[in-house]
């Protein structure tokens, strides 16, 4: 049994929803025009995800296998709607800039994926931690993507002028546009994969899909060679 910290870290980093599992890419591209939007979206997802996996993990023994998915959808949709309504009520500015993407959490792969893959097989506590970890990973990914795009495309970070404070700075508007989202996400995914491979000390080679053997030819110990030759003789 993994420790809770391990489960959390797994979602946060090792199986990061955006960079590793490549789930929930639609909002990850669409709402990341600014760091705060990305962050807000992430928080909304954390709430929906952790509540859904908690409830569904509690119910996992009662759910009939045949209506499993509709059951998940009903619960996820319920929490999404609650999130949407409370955002509109208490955070209207954020709700406005996130627009359609909050209701679209219903069809986001992350809640559905985690309930199906994890919550139906694990206890409520593990599921909750997993949900929180996955959500946190998603939030960090979106915030980073949003931050880079906002910084380059608008010169601000969390709406505070950073690069824009430099008079000669000219924003690269493309970064705010969809193309910028793809570029930033692609580069970040690459860096992420490279770093992870490096950390697991297989080196750069494996990160680029090469086998270790191709770079380092196996050495044949002399004694064995001699011995085998001698034996033959």
């Amino acid at each position: 049994m993994k420790s809770y910290l391990e489960i959390f870290k797994n979602g946060l980093w090792k199986e990061n929803a955006v960079f590793v599992l490549a789930l929930g890419l639609c909002p990850a591209l669409a709402v990341t025009t600014s760091a705060s939007d990305g962050f807000g979206m992430g928080i909304a997802l954390i709430f929906v995800l952790s509540m859904s996996v908690l409830i569904l993990s509690l119910c996992r023994n009662f759910i009939s296998d045949k209506v499993r998915v509709p059951f998940f959808m009903a619960v996820i949709a319920g929490f999404t709607t609650i999130t949407d309504m409370s955002m509109k009520a208490y955070l209207p500015a954020l709700a406005k800039s996130l627009g359609l993407y909050v209701p679209l959490i219903v069809v986001n792969c992350i809640p559905l994926g985690r309930t199906e893959v994890y919550a139906t097989k694990n206890g409520p506590m593990q599921s909750l931690i997993d949900g929180l970890g996955m959500g946190a990973g998603f939030t960090i990914a979106l915030t980073v993507i949003g931050g880079i795009r906002e910084l380059l495309g608008n010169g601000t970070l969390f709406k505070i002028p950073v690069l824009a404070a430099i008079p000669s700075f000219k924003p690269a508007v493309m970064m705010i546009m969809p193309a910028g989202g793809f570029i930033v996400m692609g580069i970040l995914m690459g860096i992420y994969a490279w770093y992870n491979k490096r950390a697991s000390n297989s080196g750069v080679a494996e990160a680029f899909g090469l086998q270790d053997e191709e770079l380092v030819p196996p050495e044949i110990p002399d004694e064995i060679t001699h011995a085998s030759v001698a034996e033959k003789n």
């Binding site: 119910c59 045949k66 009903a74 709607t81 609650i82 309504m85 409370s86 208490y90």
Partner: peptide
């Protein structure tokens, strides 16, 4: 199967009604 769906819909529906009650005014 039927009771599963019925219960989940009732519960979610009730939850939504409650949330709506709270957030409507704001």
């Amino acid at each position: 199967t039927a009771s599963n769906l019925l219960i989940v819909c009732l519960c979610v529906g009730a939850l939504l009604a409650l949330a709506n009650q709270i957030t409507r005014e704001p």
